[in-house]
């Protein structure tokens, strides 16, 4: 038996593939490896890299927050944002990483809006790093 994988985002369907050997997911409580005949599972996904293997080929997709549902050898990913490693533009990411790092090294106050701002840049940085990791994995 093999797995069927679907990744959708609110904008569009990113991946629909069959005959997949295994998938690893960035689960909120740690990395998850999914093989066929996995028990039904529903989990929240963190920002991270999803990897799936089909035959001898390995694919990586950067995922930012979402849900995964596994049942009957079907893996359905509902991601807020997802990008295939092939489509990732590294130079743009390096700029994004630099910008986020610069912003984070600056001063932050103690009130709520400032904390929010800090979180925003942290999220931006982690997104940039994850996508870079995904792009390097291809």
């Amino acid at each position: 038996m093999s797995l069927k994988l679907e990744i959708v985002t609110p904008q569009k369907k990113i991946i629909e593939e069959e005959a997949i050997d295994f998938v690893t997911l960035p689960g909120i409580e740690g990395e998850l490896g999914i093989l066929s005949e996995h028990v039904p599972l529903m989990t929240t996904l963190d920002t991270g890299v999803l990897i799936y293997q089909k035959g001898a080929q390995r694919h990586a997709t950067a995922i930012h927050w979402g849900y995964a549902q596994i049942e009957n050898n079907r893996v359905t990913i509902l991601a807020e944002m997802a990008e295939n490693a092939e489509d990732i533009d590294l130079t743009r990411l390096e700029i994004a990483e630099k910008k986020a790092k610069e912003a984070l090294s600056g001063q932050f106050g103690e009130d709520d809006t400032e904390i929010q701002r800090h979180r925003k840049y942290e999220a931006k940085l982690s997104r940039a790093l994850v996508r870079q990791a995904a792009a390097r994995m291809k």
């Binding site: 909120i28 409580e29 039904p40 599972l41 529903m42 009957n72």
Partner: peptide, 30 residues
């Protein structure tokens, strides 16, 4: 329910449901 086996939830069903329902409402409007 297509699968009669019990579904595992991670972290917990309550937590997933809470964010998921909000997302669901949001998605309907979008």
């Amino acid at each position: 329910e297509l699968d009669e086996r019990e579904i595992l939830f991670e972290p917990s069903a309550e937590k997933i449901l809470d964010t998921l329902l909000k997302k669901y409402v949001e998605n309907q409007v979008a």
